[in-house]
Design a binder for these strands. Structure first.
Lengths: 198, 198, 198, 198
DNA sequence: AATGAATGAGCATTCATTCAT
DNA sequence: TATGAATGAATGCTCATTCAT
């Protein structure tokens, strides 16, 4: 249609670019990334990257969205088989941590997104984010209904959990003692469930 | 003596540079910041900035350290008058949130530090960070001793709280509904104390 | 493939850059040269200069090599038609002087090369230099064989001649009386051949 | 008198500055030299360097003049005790080579002077240079009168010898085989005396 | 459609020189 | 008189983006 979005996107190429984008952005940061390097790694010309994604920022957002989608899928398939709200939440938390342990680059993408763009991402991102919040709010709501969880604003609970998990994995970099992200996140999860009061 | 680190640092000038550094870095990001702009705002020559701080990265770290010190002072003076571990923690959490509400730039500095340098900051930073962890661990320990808090690894508890608060304030940017950072952090704090289980 | 060394070098452009390089370096010195000026004169963007030559030093070396090649060609075509070792040497000496009289810039390039880099030039230069020494050593050797020249180490003789000529043309700048480079070099050549002893 | 030339020049300080100037200029080149480094090494403030020498270029010229004076003295004391023109010249040539072997920095100063300033040095330099030419021309003249040397223009002979020696020592840098400057200069001297013809 | 050569705005850093103390 | 803090012009090099092929 427009020249910005090729009529017949070659999904293979697009995917290769995206995949390498994530790697390079994660390693070099947004400003530190040379689009040429992404093109080289993806085995395409620099012009092709621009043909597919328009500009560097759009490319970054596409990468970030791609990562967000992966995370969404991962959380969904982790929670759905579990039985009961608590089990679902526990499974999701574990999946969240594992996701970033397996793909440290993805974590950096989230960090960069926050640092560079502060939530000024396109509608699409916010929609997906919102969708995730809703899905978990539903779980929490059911937990409240069934009596597993204390009553309260489900969205607020979800937001707190999300923030705590995000903080755990992002903050883990600062940990000197080699506690794995997984351990840190698990600890956070437990506290999240039971609190620290006696 | 090298001219890099002035023998008689003009504290007024140094402070002006630091203050503007924080503002500009926060707004433009690390790579996006033109040192010239800091110099202009601080009312000094660009050479003076380099004379005082050596290079851009060192300047950033000095800014980040400066912010960290402020936060440390703020948390200390918030918690010390409070009575009992729980009260101390609550007061600290509130102070943490207020600190960033009052100085949104400071939050961005923390975010940039994580994004750009991933904990590769100079020793000094890590020492101060460690000191803060210890101070809070002590509070938690006393809370456990007095029976206010459930028994557990105090450092792990502190780390979880720190991560959760960090996550709350950093993540708040993504919140569409205008929930203030304060509200989000307060909610996180309550859950942190009591958990979500019924 | 890196974009640093263009796959299809545009010889016209490359040559234009090289030609202007020599002029500007000769006039301004190595450090005094602003690559932007070379780009402007060559009618290309600054980025293009860097694309073709990588950095300022490499550009300088390319210029110096280019000059050395010219000199080599000039000496070769001057000596080859002459008959006998002495005639060949005389012709070469004259050509050497004329070369620099016609292209004073080239002389400055040699001077700068010595001043700035002290023989730390890339292999290629040293190889060409060595080749020139060998070619002349051969001439000297034949002169010795034919009895035209006194016996001795041909390479040492060549090196002495080279040094003397180099000294003549470089040193000529200091001459107040407007003796031309040509005259100075010719005088040096004659002494070189016959000595000053009676 | 003027502020440029301090009324009571502290000869010790002046000398220290000059001595370090030579070292630093020789190592770093003219443009590459940071006046601060000279000041540091000389143990004075940067302002003092400027007070004594006015500006960087003047400082360089003073250094070059200082070196030229040393060379002049060395050549004079080498030639005067020798008997006969040839002996005087031989002794001078040897002294010339030894001078630069002992003080490689001095050689670089000469090279830099030629590269950077092309004989645009102040009157004083040219006078001393001229004086040296005259002194040697006298020796040559006497050699011609006594029949030791072939008749010719004594100044031209001196100039040729000077150029050849200069060329020898300067060009020596390019010599791969580790022939010492001394050997190269001696070889040049012999050829200069007897020529290469059989 | 795909490419990659060309461009030039942009920025970190240096250093000669000045001048207030 | 001696100093060294302050300055800002100067310059090497990068890289997002364009566009002719």
């Amino acid at each position: 249609m427009s020249a910005q979005t090729p009529a017949k996107p070659d999904v293979t190429k697009e995917d290769a670019i995206l995949r390498e984008s994530v790697r390079v952005f994660a390693r070099e940061g947004f400003r530190g990334t040379d689009v040429q390097e992404i093109a080289n790694r993806a085995g395409v010309g620099k012009g092709t990257v621009y043909r597919y994604f328009g500009d560097k920022q759009t490319l970054f957002w596409a990468s970030a969205y791609w990562v967000l989608e992966q995370l969404h899928g991962r959380l969904a398939s982790a929670s759905s088989p579990a039985d009961g709200a608590i089990a679902k939440l526990r499974a999701s938390c574990r999946a969240y941590a594992e996701f970033f342990v397996e793909n440290p680059d993805y974590l950096e993408i989230f960090v960069l997104d926050r640092a560079e763009f502060r939530g000024r991402a396109p509608e699409r991102h916010q929609e997906l984010h919102e969708r995730m919040v809703c899905e978990f709010a539903e779980i929490v709501e059911q937990g409240m209904a069934s009596g597993e969880l204390r009553r309260g604003d489900p969205r607020a609970v979800v937001w707190s959990l999300g923030s705590a998990l995000y903080g755990s994995v992002v903050f883990a970099t600062y940990s000197k003692q080699q506690q794995s992200i997984t351990e840190l996140a698990e600890c956070a999860t437990e506290i999240f469930l039971r609190g620290i009061l006696s």
